[in-house]
Design a protein around this nucleic acid. Sequence first.
DNA 1: CGATAATTGATTGAAAATGATTAGAAGTGC
DNA 2: GCACTTCTAATCATTTTCAATCAATTATCG
Lengths: 257, 257
Amino acid sequence: MNDHRLLTPEREEKILDLLRETTVLTVAELSDTLGVSPATIRRDLQSMHERKLLERVRGGATLRRMTRVEPLFHDKQSQNTAAKQAIATAALKLVEDHDRIYLDGGSTILMLARLLEARHDLTVVTNSLMAAAELMTCEHLLILVGGEFRALSRTLVGPLTTPVVQSVHVDKAFMGTIGFTLKDGMTTTDPSEAFTKERVMERANQVILLADSSKLGVPSFTRSGVIEDVDVLVTDAIDNSLKKELESLGIEVIVAD
Amino acid sequence: MNDHRLLTPEREEKILDLLRETTVLTVAELSDTLGVSPATIRRDLQSMHERKLLERVRGGATLRRMTRVEPLFHDKQSQNTAAKQAIATAALKLVEDHDRIYLDGGSTILMLARLLEARHDLTVVTNSLMAAAELMTCEHLLILVGGEFRALSRTLVGPLTTPVVQSVHVDKAFMGTIGFTLKDGMTTTDPSEAFTKERVMERANQVILLADSSKLGVPSFTRSGVIEDVDVLVTDAIDNSLKKELESLGIEVIVAD
DNA sequence: CGATAATTGATTGAAAATGATTAGAAGTGC
DNA sequence: GCACTTCTAATCATTTTCAATCAATTATCG
């Protein structure tokens, strides 16, 4: 009956129909069934994928991703991974069961978040969407501060974070930073982010700063906290004189290895 | 029927299926059953382990001890997909450039979120982590309400959402629901979620309810809003008498196709 | 009918997945 | 502790799949 070649919309409809039956189809199968070249099928699949009608996988297509849904928040592989991993592991020792803790943004703290499964019954407050995604599937109580989303750091920042931050009270705040110097304290690139960091540290019993050695002695743009805010510094390597100075200010320095 | 080589997602799905039956599988067994080399199986297992879909053990793999909440969400999403897609597409027409909108949780609204790239310079407020993940990479200003994370719906709920919700004001709120009846209005399963929905609708100029026909006339557990809160209902099919009644209450009914 | 635009299929180099191989790590038995 | 086996992670060649390009065909519009 249909001896004319299928037009694009017909083909698309057909592809969707077939997919609904089998959930997975290869390019070769489609090219075969519909009697068009693989190149055309690929073009169709790409266009339909862009319109979110299906999910493209290597070799074919499927309806909405079945298993490969997880990495919603991708972790752009960061640098200095080994050092950060060591720092996170050392920081985990500071977390006890039933603690109420705050997690700041940053890749070091993200690694700490991944380790938190080892503890029980935590209350975790965070402004980091990456950390939240990580903790989504675990048993702990997870609270997100609200606020404006900052794409670069994937955190929630700005004045809208204040109400939630101020209505909770945490035992320990695990903070990240871009720069850390004796003179300027903690510094970061974005004023909104700095604002939120300061509000958080005001409300924490204990402030634990996680900063690998590349951050120490290097200032960034805007102040996000004075040095007196910090109670504990966890790092991977530190100049001995700096360590002494910090300790004379009452800051505990933990060197991870 | 399917004689093609298995595509990656098929293999993964199959591995999970097998695991659900036997709880533990060796690399050799899997390689045998799926007809691929042990090297490939190892690569699959590692990738799936990183996505936390299974637990790796020496010589093979096993399911994680905790049953995952994941499938619940996906099941919901996979039901009635065509209808939801149509509803989302129709709802998109109600969004204009520069609008300030609120996005509720739920799979229908998630689909709408995916379409928002077609608009410019929106301010999007949401309590849905899935929607946030979707909008993370786009140009719009994204604001998350804070609050307690509810795993089942992947939304932020409860009293901590109030401050952010009350300090912003949106033109249009796109809401989802579990049940919708003339008598009870909108109903949902979780009181905390209902609480947040009600606070949101108080603060929106216009409330647009997205509900496929399976929700209409079906009540759920707890009230999340009265019928007068709704300004527009977008659905895929509706009984004519119900439509008339809603319209007599001043509710605009849009039927997508 | 003719000109232009869109779609298609073939070709190509690049990218990704796979399977085989190997050196080293981890487990097992003595 | 030591030899022995098993498993793993890394590397490389091979195969498969992909995106880009171009020519040929088909559709569209004046």
